[in-house]
């Protein structure tokens, strides 16, 4: 029917409206298709191929060979071992790391959403000093991860400032950077560093709410709480869901924070996926095994991404139709 997949919609429309084949041909060639400058995709497409697709294919290939420091020099001749790397990955610490990473990311996201939305609502209406408050809210977001982690690590030392303060209140702070509590430390610091992202997205969502909506709800006599829950929050659903998705992916991929906070080798409780991939790759030098782990991580990240992106696209259409 069409000469390539991308014109399906056009062609279908052409079929519906035009009865005579000759007429249809003219319409297709005549207006829309020729004016689409598809060739402009070429530079971007080539770059994508070069910096995403080729390395990705290489990673897939590396995950299937026994590549380590002994075979690195002749890496094209490294023995092909099929799925052995994947089997080994699942027999080693990977499932545990997946569990830690996913739970850490979901908990961090869930905890940052209320903070972000509350902060956005608090800075929506103009008041004296609002711009200062907004700027202060963004501080955690603009600080480099490395700095955030270093400062927190210093504060959370066994004899650090946090434990000293707790001791004054007769609380034994204990160990923050080792053992089971390190997992909660990681979440705590991640929340501190990441909530402004939700705030930014929620703020953007709030500002897109029309003035008429506020007027209408005022005329209807809605108090602030029903107005917030029934009028404003539904508007935020799209941007905040997108923010949640992006934030979760960011949490899963965060390497700097655990690495600087806990060092390598990491305590078992915070051995997240990026850490295990890093240690396998750059300390144990098992590139094949770590590539397999990285690909498993990629697949795990891709599942929610795929589901959400589909859901989100529907959302956008709906809103587009409303306007």
């Amino acid at each position: 029917m069409t000469d390539d997949g991308t014109t399906t919609t056009l062609a279908e429309r052409g079929e519906d409206t035009a009865a005579a084949p000759g007429h249809r041909e003219r319409r297709r060639r005549g207006v829309t298709e020729q004016q689409r400058p598809l060739w402009m995709l070429i530079p971007g497409g080539l770059l994508m191929t070069l910096i995403i697709i080729i390395p990705l294919l290489l990673a897939v290939y590396i995950s299937l060979i026994d590549l380590d420091q002994y075979t690195l020099r002749r890496w094209l001749e490294a023995p092909f071992i099929g799925l052995d790397n994947f089997v080994e990955a699942f027999q080693s610490g990977l499932p545990n790391s997946i569990w830690i990473s996913v739970s850490f990311a979901v908990l961090s996201t869930a905890a940052t959403v209320p903070f972000g939305i509350a902060a956005a609502v608090a800075t929506q209406n103009a008041y004296r000093g609002r711009s200062l408050v907004r700027a202060v809210f963004l501080i955690p977001y603009v600080l480099p991860s490395f700095v955030v982690a270093t400062v927190w690590r210093t504060m959370l030392q066994p004899d650090g400032i946090v434990n000293n303060l707790l001791a004054k209140a007769n609380v034994d702070g204990g160990l923050w950077l080792s053992g089971p509590k390190s997992y909660w430390t990681l979440i705590l610091v991640e929340i501190w560093a990441a909530w402004p992202f939700i705030y930014l997205m929620a703020l953007a969502g709030l500002q897109s709410v029309d003035g008429e909506v506020h007027e209408a709800s005022a005329i209807d006599g809605a108090n602030w709480w029903p107005k917030l829950t029934h009028v404003i929050l539904p508007y935020l659903r799209g941007p905040v869901l997108l923010a949640c998705l992006l934030a979760t992916l960011n949490h899963i991929n965060n390497f700097t924070l655990p690495f600087v906070l806990f060092g390598a080798p990491a305590p078992d409780d915070v051995n997240v996926m990026p850490m295990i991939v890093y240690v396998t790759s750059f300390q144990s030098l098992r590139f094949g095994l770590s590539a397999a782990m990285a690909i498993v991580s990629l697949l795990i990240i891709a599942i929610p991404l795929f589901v959400y992106l589909r859901a989100l696209r529907l959302d956008v259409h709906e809103e587009g139709g409303r306007k």
């Binding site: 204990g174 080792s178 053992g179 305590p267």
Partner: peptide, 20 residues
Amino acid sequence: WADIQLALTNVVVQSIPDLS
């Protein structure tokens, strides 16, 4: 050796909660 060094250090890393 790089792996052995890592394994030796890891024994201490994982023992720190018990040490405390």
